[in-house]
Amino acid sequence: MHSRTVTWSLLSALLLLALPWLLPQVMPAGQAQFWIANILGRAIVFGIIAMSLTFLATYGGFISLAQMMVAGVAGYTLAVFAEGAVPRIVGGLGYGAAIPLGLLAATAMGLLVGAISMRTRDIYLLMITLALAMGVFRFIETNIAWFNGYEGIRNVVGPSVLGMDFRNTFVFYHVALGTAALLYIGIIYLVRTPFGLVLQGIRDNPRRVAALGYSVALHRTAAFGVAGFIAGCGGVLSTIYNIGISPGTIGLGGTVNVLIMSVIGGLGHPIGAFIGSLIFTVFDTFAATIYDRDRFNTLIGLVFLAIVLVSPDGAIGIGVRLRRLLAASRR
């Protein structure tokens, strides 16, 4: 069973890596390029941010609505310090320095969110993280000196990797895919370490974990820090993808979108984040064909409602149930 999972993961990873070459075989080149950049690339980037939420929810039982805001902190830090961004706020740093700085800021913000919400659980945590996220959003939106207010910061074009330009669709896709894969493997590894086991213990029964002598507060805060780093990676990538960042990215809409992706995919496993973000992006792109371009929110809202009402464990849950049904009928 275990080795089969590994084989499957390797196969799907290879398939994803080869997609930029496989897609043009089955569809016109322009269309393939569109799929790679606007659907798959975007889904991976948002999937990384959603995965930070899924990580907290799956292994800690924390539903944090602050993850998009944390991603935004990374994006804004990058935009504030990166050379060439318009308007120039601090500038002067190359991408090699600005990106790690952004990740550091996101990790710090993640730790801060964890520390502030330390004594709350469940829906209280949901409320407090949402309030924090909206607070940072409104602060950034009204602050001209540091964040250029409502307009945001433009022209964050990204570095060139080993002489290849980041703006090249294939380069961006592979960097995003590589980052996502590394973070995913990192999470799978982390939850098997003592730290991950304590985290899962906290999810199931924080009192017992505390009685065993572990510091619940410390582990919780650290988990939020890890999630902050993951969200930060997504934030940096999405800022480069969008060639800049504006407060709208981290507003209520953006915050809820990340939650929608995680829940649609399923909060039971980190892979759910990517399934959810792919479904979300496909709906987003083809809303015009399905219902009405301007009414995308109604469409995705209804999909979200249907998932929550019918299958609270998301697409993963549907898959598991289907497989069980098939196995039962085969018997």
Binding site: I63, L126, L302, F304
Partner: peptide, 20 residues
């Protein structure tokens, strides 16, 4: 939690329909 999620979905649909 599920109830909170339901009301989030509802608010998205309602706000979008009001905009329409």
């Amino acid at each position: 939690l599920r109830q909170a999620l339901v009301t989030i979905g509802l608010s998205i649909v309602v706000a979008d329909q009001l905009l329409a």
